[in-house]
Amino acid sequence: MSEKERRLLTKKDLNKIFLRSYCYECSFNFVRQQHMGFAWSMAPALKKIYKDDPEGLAQACKRQISFFNTTPQIAPWVVGIETALEEENHRANDQMGEVVSAVKTSLMGPISVIGDTLFLTGGFRLLAPTIGASLAVQGNWLAIPIFLLIFNVPHFLSRYFGIHLGYQWGSSFFEKVVASGLIDKMTEVCYILGLTMIGAVSANYVALSTPLAYGSGESAVTIQGILDSLFLNILPLGVIMLCLWLMKKKNVPAHWLIFLLMAIGIIGGALGILA
């Protein structure tokens, strides 16, 4: 089916889905995560596509409340693609159901990696607070709009073009983006950028040093001086690696790590070992 034949949904319909996509995470739950959010976003489209086909609508509902989870800011791409596929399915007399489900499931993984590195673990998620907060601590109110814009301009664009381009491309998204290797390449860029930024930002914002010294007066040698000459920020790096190791290898939940660090900090600080 060529893209030009797909005319059922107007720009207005797509904009409605775009707006609804902001309420996508309402029903996030442990069982099927974003399942209802997906159906909620595309509800107006489903109603229009299956206007006089109640059986088709029921099948579509079942498909679209299956387990789904991805970065919410990038989920509209999948919503857009699925909307197009549902429409194709209706034209094919409801014979394409399995394809529609398969596409949805298979997009979850690759698109999450890109979404996560841009909006959850790196990218704009780290840029916005680093720049925003450095203005805020100086008491500059511009921190608030800058903080919000750095994150939400890309966020808005991802949602808007996700719905519109996703719908326009439909199943050809696979040839254009997945099969061409573009997703793999973007994933690699995201990993490179994400990890470098986590490294850079963490060097800036984890702080720990020790006031300990031996000898006295002029000839005193500070431990921190020795550590600095070995490797700057060696203590903060050690704390991060300790947390990571406990989290990954010992399965210690993050909130216990918070308590652990608070205990170490309070005791070490009170005894004058750490600063």
């Binding site: 986590i198 984890v206 720990l208 991060i240 300790l242 790590l257 660090l261 900090g265 309070i266 600080g269």
Partner: peptide, 14 residues
């Protein structure tokens, strides 16, 4: 000590 702790805490997030 609380000051030391809050400077260390970002480590958990990272």
């Amino acid at each position: 000590g609380l000051g030391v702790a809050s400077n260390m805490l970002p480590a958990v997030g990272f």
